[in-house]
Design a protein around this nucleic acid. Sequence first.
DNA 1: TATTGTTATACTCTATAACTATA
DNA 2: TATAGTTATAGAGTATAACAATA
Lengths: 157, 157
Amino acid sequence: MTKAQTDPQGGNQQDHDRADIGAINAILGFHIRLAHGVCLRHFTETFAELGLTQKQVSVLWLVDDHPGIAQTDLAQRLQMDRATTMAIINRLQAKHLLRRDRSAHDGRKQALHLEPEGHAMLARAKLAIGEHEAWVKRNFSDAEVKTLIALLSRIHE
Amino acid sequence: MTKAQTDPQGGNQQDHDRADIGAINAILGFHIRLAHGVCLRHFTETFAELGLTQKQVSVLWLVDDHPGIAQTDLAQRLQMDRATTMAIINRLQAKHLLRRDRSAHDGRKQALHLEPEGHAMLARAKLAIGEHEAWVKRNFSDAEVKTLIALLSRIHE
DNA sequence: TATTGTTATACTCTATAACTATA
DNA sequence: TATAGTTATAGAGTATAACAATA
């Protein structure tokens, strides 16, 4: 991502991102997107054997933390649409990792619970997340990680 | 995203994320994903009229900054696969926003340039990005933005 | 041989709209 | 009326694999 490794020979006649106020590198959203993309790729590689995606792991984890959680609550916590949530839950259910029970308190809601296979998978996933996290934090001190999490939280809260 | 707004009545018997070392909220990758999701949604709303995505705008911007850039270089700068880059370039070309010219220096490469419509669209897009960025930064001081960008850069560099 | 671009293919996430069931 | 879930549908990004053209 350094600027030096560009322009081996052809093409780029100009390079006017010296001190531009409007340079793309000054856009916060640009950096969030790039960091996300890099993490997503590494996550996918790390989880290739387990066959789980970021979102799927997040859902397993939250259902384990909050047994009986409803899809709407899950959607809110993960900033997802209802339909998106459905798609993810459907895939996890097809893998027999969780089940839907009708809520006793509110007939409209589904109470989500992990299946035994779901618990086993989550345990393995947490080990893989440990590896992945270590990679993400590879250049950071504990204090910097804390700062980064605090700042990011103020975006998605 | 606060913890208090959960558990209106049914479901969640437990809530053991008090001070767990392994709590999902302590996972940096989790916060990157959430922040990205929130930004993506707001971006999509902001750009609904223009009909452009985050990635498409990034590509337009980089092609404008580096006229004649090759797809491989673009892929490297945006942390994308070659095939992914193809898909995005194809969509932008179908909208007549940019064109592919065979590179004079290296017959394997494509030299990308914005079409006049691409320049006009980018100008409009930059205004919309200004709005979007203001929203992303709504809770931050200038110093905090600087810190956040510096930390994120160390993930994707 | 290595690089660049291309095509075919597949999966996940994302969202909208319309529908059913329940509160 | 409002909420929760569901289904159908569509688009975008992501990646792998195999191939052609060029260096």
